[in-house]
């Protein structure tokens, strides 16, 4: 950065050399970002030892189906994918509903202790998850929720970030006049929320939904703690299990499963990347 800027110390606009240098760095950076995805695909189409070929193999071959068949023998791949989908969809739906509701109350209602309660919500963001993991495990054991999806879904049903995020958006996007008009027409509180506020704030809900889904889908620590039986494993645990095989690692098989598990996320991301990135940046700007 310093190098590049001193180079053009007296220039108003950077010259051709700087432009070339900038593009070079940016493209190399992008190549670093993308290469592991490509490599994952290449290895998934090669035989067992493809990952350690010298020099490294950079073109796909035709072993993908064979590799993925072995992955299906080693794990309950599609079952795990289904489990992840059930958990992630339930959590996302619930987070969207409860966080929007609470964010709406914090943005548009006056009630006693509103400010301290909101600060309390923000404060909980700074508490690391691991601090409460042992008692939460004990609670799950008492409720006999160990090794069930309830243990994954219920604690995640509403979160502080979502409330904060929805409150920020609703404050500016939903006009109080609209709510008042609804009240004059005799709508109840929930109907105003559902029929007047929610339709206006779907962009913010889309972003929150995408992020919640991704985080739940990618979570590893808590599922590892509470899931015991392989038929309940989420896809992340199933992938990790493939990696613990003792008799020599079959990287073609592992990468084919990893590729199949990453592909859906990648497709969703490339289709909706606008929502991801605006969500990410405006979240950072506001906090």
């Amino acid at each position: 950065m310093v190098k590049a800027s001193t180079r053009n110390r007296n220039a108003d606009k950077p010259g051709f050399a700087a432009s070339f240098f900038y593009h070079l760095v940016l493209i190399v950076g992008a190549a670093f970002s993308v290469f592991p995805f490509y490599w994952m695909f290449v290895i998934s189409t090669r035989d067992k030892s493809g990952a350690f070929h010298v020099p490294p193999l950079l073109t796909p071959s035709d072993q993908f189906v064979a590799n993925f068949k072995r992955a299906l023998e080693q794990s309950d791949f599609f079952h795990a994918l289904g489990n992840s989908a059930i958990v992630s969809i339930s959590v996302t739906a619930s987070v969207l509903f409860f966080c929007t509701l609470a964010g709406y109350a914090f943005a548009k209602y006056q009630f006693r202790f509103k400010t301290p309660l909101f600060f309390f919500v923000i404060g909980t963001l700074f508490v690391p998850q691991q601090l409460g993991v042992l008692p939460t495990y004990v609670i799950m054991a008492k409720l006999q929720w160990i090794d069930t999806y309830k243990a994954l879904i219920v604690p995640a049903m509403v979160n502080a970030f979502g409330i904060f995020w929805m409150r920020q958006y609703i404050s500016s996007a939903v006009h109080t006049e609209l709510i008042e008009a609804g009240r004059i027409d005799g709508c109840g509180h929930f109907r105003i929320f559902w029929n007047i506020a929610v339709p206006v704030i779907t962009p913010a809900m889309a972003t929150l939904g995408i992020f919640t889904f991704l985080n739940t889908w990618n979570d590893f620590f808590w599922p590892l703690v509470v899931l015991k039986n392989s038929e309940h494993f989420t896809i992340q645990i199933a992938l990790q299990q493939l990696f613990t095989v003792r008799d020599g690692l079959d990287y073609g098989m592992i990468m084919s499963a990893t590729f199949m598990a990453t592909l859906p996320l990648l497709v969703v991301f490339l289709l909706f990347s606008r929502w991801f990135i605006t969500g990410l940046t405006s979240g950072a700007v506001k906090s």
Binding site: A30, F37, W217, N218, F220, Q236, L239, T262, L265
Partner: peptide, 12 residues
């Protein structure tokens, strides 16, 4: 492209 790595799970 820069954001792509972040959506991948840590396990992957």
């Amino acid at each position: 492209l820069y954001f792509m790595p972040n959506i991948t799970s840590i396990v992957a």
